[in-house]
Design a binder for these strands. Structure first.
Length: 388
DNA sequence: ACACGTATTTGTGGTTCACCTTTCT
DNA sequence: AAGAAAGGTGAACCACAAATACGTG
């Protein structure tokens, strides 16, 4: 397949907000700039206060939080306008996009809210920095404080895609008379941070997340997944441990949805794994963590090999069933307790059931196969043999 | 180590249907 | 409270090009 790197002809800077940036200090500390809005508290919060407030107890952690509207700075954002690179509340979105000349050409999509006490990595996912080079953000070297991530090789490159033209559906339509002569479409590859939904506050968000990451014990970029979860857990009371959930911005505190992109949400996946692990006897831990494939040796002291699979659907079959593995020492770090055999069986069956029903968003690996499948003749939805 | 040929496996989407949950009677 | 109906969800099915694995010289 042709993977022609798509370099924009020119990279127009994001249009500055047309409105004066409102003062939006955190309602809690009154010091940092607020980037989140909690509907339940009707409060604007910075990332660190959000964590402090919502890790207090289980009830608070259920509060749904959204980004703050870039325009009014006073309401929860529910729409991300890719054209303006802004997150907007429904009111501002309505005002800005109801003009006949504007709405048809602006790419907008709903954005998500979250609850729980997400780790830094999960928050990165939430604001769309899920595949940002961790080194760029989480440098532990204090001297790097002077480094301008936004002007150097770091984030400016990361945001380059925003200047790319979006591929419309019209670009992908193949003329019907070309049905038997398929060629790989010259489609620019998707931007590496296509999930990015942070608006005008992205720099402030990254700054706050960077500070937040330093509060998480043992956090470093080399084992971000593990340390994030472990660090996160150490900050949250035992009873309040629950992974962050994302909501679409249109649901208004409705049912939480799971993180949509498996690759982009390793942290969520890992948290799910830990949830299952917490239900398992310690003797099963080793294999579970090997299966998760994200835990460096030094944390589990098992000496197990760590591998990264690009396809989560297959990894399970390559590993033995956890039940059959040998025993490893108890890991008090995770607060495990011994279970009786009934609880143990129940836990194992729950774990297996969850593993069976685990689903991920569909990821197209071969665009050419997709194009071909879409145009193949079918009978009742099934592929039909070609007429000779 | 490399090239080549052959065998096997993978991945793709629209429809159908079984199964489960929710709502209605 | 119980059963029926409606609605929602996800797995299975299909053919075949492309990708991958393997054997041979």
């Amino acid at each position: 397949m042709s993977e022609t790197p798509h370099k924009p002809q020119e990279t127009p800077q994001p249009t500055p907000p047309q409105h004066e940036q409102p003062k939006r200090l955190c309602d809690y500390c009154n010091d940092k700039r607020a980037v989140l809005y909690c509907r339940a508290d009707s409060a604007k919060l910075c990332f660190s206060c959000d964590r402090e407030v919502h890790s207090t107890n289980q009830l608070f952690s259920k509060h749904s939080r959204s980004q703050l509207c870039d325009i009014c700075g006073d309401s929860p954002a529910s729409i991300f306008c890719e054209t303006e690179h802004s997150v907007l509340c429904s009111n501002c979105d309505w005002e800005n996009h109801t003009t006949l000349y504007v709405s048809p050409v602006h790419n907008r999509r709903p954005i998500e809210s979250f609850n729980g006490c997400p780790s830094v990595t999960e928050l990165l996912t939430f604001v769309g920095f899920d595949d940002l080079d961790d080194k760029a953000l989480f440098s532990t070297d204090e001297d790097n404080n002077n480094y301008n991530y936004f002007d150097g090789d770091g984030l400016s490159e990361y945001f380059d895609w925003e200047a790319n033209d979006f591929v419309s559906i019209d670009n992908l339509i193949v003329p019907s008379d070309a049905a038997h002569n398929y060629q790989a479409l010259d489609v620019p590859s998707l931007p590496k941070n296509r999930n990015a939904t942070c608006g005008q506050q992205k720099e402030e968000m990254l700054r706050q997340l960077r500070q937040l990451s330093k509060l998480e014990p043992n956090y470093n970029y080399e084992n971000v997944d593990t340390e994030t979860v472990v660090g996160f857990r150490s900050l949250v009371p035992e009873l309040d441990r629950q992974p962050g959930n994302l909501h679409t911005g249109l649901e208004h505190d409705a049912k939480p949805i799971s993180f949509p992109d498996r690759e982009a949400n390793a942290a969520q996946w890992f948290t799910d794994s830990l949830e299952a692990v917490n239900q398992l006897p310690s003797s099963l831990l080793r294999n579970k963590f090997e299966e998760s494939s994200v835990v460096p040796d030094q944390h589990l002291e098992t000496g197990g090999r760590v591998s990264h699979s690009s396809d989560g659907h297959k990894e399970q079959s390559h590993h033995p069933d956890p039940v059959t593995t040998e025993t490893v020492p108890v890991l008090p770090k995770f607060g495990l307790h011994e279970l009786n055999s009934q609880e143990r069986d129940s836990a194992i069956s729950r774990y297996k059931e969850k593993r069976k029903t685990r689903r991920y968003d569909k990821h197209i690996r071969y665009e050419s196969r997709k194009v071909r499948a879409e145009s193949r003749t079918r009978i009742k939805g099934r592929f039909a043999k070609l007429e000779q």
